[in-house]
Amino acid sequence: MSTVIEQAVEARLVAAAPRMQTIPATLHYDRQDPFAVQMSFPAPATLEGVEVSWAFARELLTQGVERPVGDGDVRVRPYGFDRTVVEFHAPEGTAIVHIRTGELRRFLHSTTALVPLGHEHHYVDLDQDLAELMRDAC
């Protein structure tokens, strides 16, 4: 069984230039980092012209499809019947994307099949993580 899940999604960038109404994005989940998900945007979809990835809590995405959550760099909330808004806040500005809620639920269902919610701690190797931290500190 694979320990990584990747799913392409179509994101609609709010207030985007007309040439880029929808952008491809990729959701990524790795059992070795069970608390986090990543969302990546390809270079043509970014102001800097380089691929951009955001990592944030899987729990934030899970709760955000149901109700507004987040007060930091990433915020998620339902929008209408079939969309979810994900906001990315950085010093350079804010990017707001709409994603089909069904796509997010499908991705979350796959991550939950790989690592059930509430069981993430079983997939964290604290001894290895501590050894890496100590090695880097010397």
Rank of each mutant, 00 (worst) to 15 (best):
R19G: 11
M20S: 14
M20R: 13
M20Q: 13
M20W: 15
Q21P: 06
T22V: 14
T22L: 11
T22M: 12
I23G: 04
P24D: 14
T26M: 10
L27M: 11
L27S: 03
L27Y: 09
H28R: 15
Y29N: 06
Y29P: 05
Y29T: 02
D30N: 14
R31S: 14
R31W: 07
R31Y: 12
Q32L: 11
D33K: 12
D33N: 11
D33F: 12
D33S: 14
D33P: 09
P34S: 06
P34I: 03
P34N: 06
P34K: 03
A36G: 09
A36P: 04
A36D: 10
A36V: 06
V37C: 01
Q38H: 13
M39L: 12
M39R: 00
S40W: 07
S40P: 09
F41A: 06
F41C: 07
P42F: 02
A43Q: 04
A43T: 06
A43H: 03
P44F: 00
P44L: 01
P44D: 01
T46N: 02
L47Q: 15
E48T: 15
E48N: 12
E48I: 09
G49L: 04
G49F: 06
V50Y: 10
V50I: 14
V50L: 11
E51L: 04
E51D: 08
V52P: 02
W54A: 05
W54Q: 01
W54T: 03
A55E: 08
F56I: 07
F56K: 03
A57Y: 05
R58Y: 08
R58Q: 05
E59K: 13
L60V: 09
L61R: 05
L61Q: 07
G64L: 00
G64C: 00
V65K: 00
V65G: 00
V65Y: 00
E66V: 09
P68W: 02
G70Q: 00
G70P: 01
G70F: 01
D71E: 13
D71K: 10
D71F: 03
G72D: 12
G72I: 10
D73S: 12
D73K: 08
V74S: 05
R75A: 14
R75G: 07
V76L: 14
R77K: 15
P78K: 01
Y79Q: 10
G80W: 10
F81G: 11
F81D: 15
F81N: 15
F81R: 15
D82K: 08
T84L: 02
